[in-house]
Nucleic acid binder design. Structure first.
Lengths: 223, 223
DNA sequence: ACCTGAACACCGTTCAAGT
DNA sequence: ACCTGAACACCGTTCAAGT
């Protein structure tokens, strides 16, 4: 009964074999992002890199926004993975927040891509679910755990956005940045910033991140 | 000596009177932003709104990025204004963070505009200086005060980014958003998120913001 | 001094037609 | 079923020429 076994495959039995696949396209898009940056990531350049016509991309992604959302989602792969055992909830929260920061930093303009898409895929959901779970296990009621998880994610996103902006500004030869710093050092106008020059010009972003994250964790004051 | 008093003005005595001025252009750009959103804010549309040719804009802003930076800077006008007297440092920090959130929310896509420009104008510098000042007055050493100020700004930026994204998603008829929520309610895959459905779907962004900000403030544990 | 007009080198998106 | 080829309606940016 049915067609003979000469049909090419039971899952995709007829028509031309696909020249491109969505997962591969996302991987190529992330490579292009790393090489050229977000502003240079166009549908046309992606099509060229995939050796395909531009229109073909719209068979897999309805809009460029959808492509970016798929990229943002892909970035979080693995962030919700198993946590080291025998650790305190504070260490687990620190681990999870660190994973998110690392995931966004791993790709050029990663934070901008993530911030620009309201990502709601399984990787993002799993990540948030895991973070809320750690906070509930620490003794927080559901609402407090959820709001705290969002606060941690929002802080991490904002921090990483600035960290990447600062990094790109630094290795692009900081033109107006030094002028602004000079203005900041004006003791009359910005007395506090001028005292803080060392901290402001510091590139120890890990310490800056740890400071903010510790504030959030300490603020919970869980017994 | 010199030209007679018939010359039009001592400051701009010769040539054609300017048809546009940078401050007016920024104000118009912010109005366009509110009306059409960031994606529709193009140099060409701004030129049309100003009744000027596109090229003329490049006399005042070297690039579109410069325009966006000027808009971001303008948004923070007044945020560093005098603080109410006779208040605790906690109340002052809350006031300042609330002003930043309000400033970013005041314009459509305001957070996205601010996040996309590494703003370093006087309004931004004054704001940060004021926040650092309040934290130092509360007893924090300079480095801790500065890092805390950045943490507060980064959290506020991240929170506001998500708040505006959620708001635009809500009044654009949330298409895939309900699907994602449905997935989140899958108790097998996201046990914690499904318990937190009420908090996740809440539109009480002010409470969400206050929660995160209080965490940061409590975390300081200043005597 | 300031603006116009026109061009250059691109974009995202759509869709008939091919195989 | 999947892709090509070509078009549509735009972009940001530059620059000679006008007044």
């Amino acid at each position: 009964m049915g067609t003979p076994s000469t049909s090419p495959s039971p899952q995709r039995p007829r028509g031309r074999p696909p020249k491109m696949a969505a997962p591969g396209a996302v991987a190529t898009a992330l490579r292009l992002l790393d090489e050229e940056g977000l502003d240079a990531l166009t549908m046309r350049r992606l099509a060229t890199a995939l050796d395909v016509q531009v229109g073909t991309l719209y068979r897999h992604f309805a809009t460029k926004q959808d492509l970016l959302a798929a990229m943002a989602e892909e970035m979080l792969a693995g962030c919700a993975g198993p946590l080291p055992e025998g650790t305190t909830w504070q260490e687990q929260v620190t681990e999870l927040a660190g994973r998110l920061r690392a995931a966004l930093l791993r790709h050029r303009d990663g934070a901008r891509v993530y911030a620009g898409t309201h990502a709601v895929g399984p990787n993002t959901l799993s990540y948030t679910d895991t973070l809320v779970g750690v906070l509930r296990a620490a003794g927080l009621p559901t609402q407090a755990a959820t709001r705290t998880a969002f606060a941690i994610v929002h802080f991490t996103l904002g921090h990483t956005l600035e960290e990447q902006a600062a990094a790109e500004l630094i290795d692009s030869g900081l033109p107006a940045a030094l002028d602004a710093l000079h203005a900041a050092l004006d003791r009359r106008r910005y007395p506090n910033l001028s005292d803080a020059a060392a901290t402001i010009t510091s590139t120890d972003f890990a310490a800056q991140f740890a400071h903010g994250l510790n504030l959030l964790i300490n603020g919970l004051a869980v017994r």
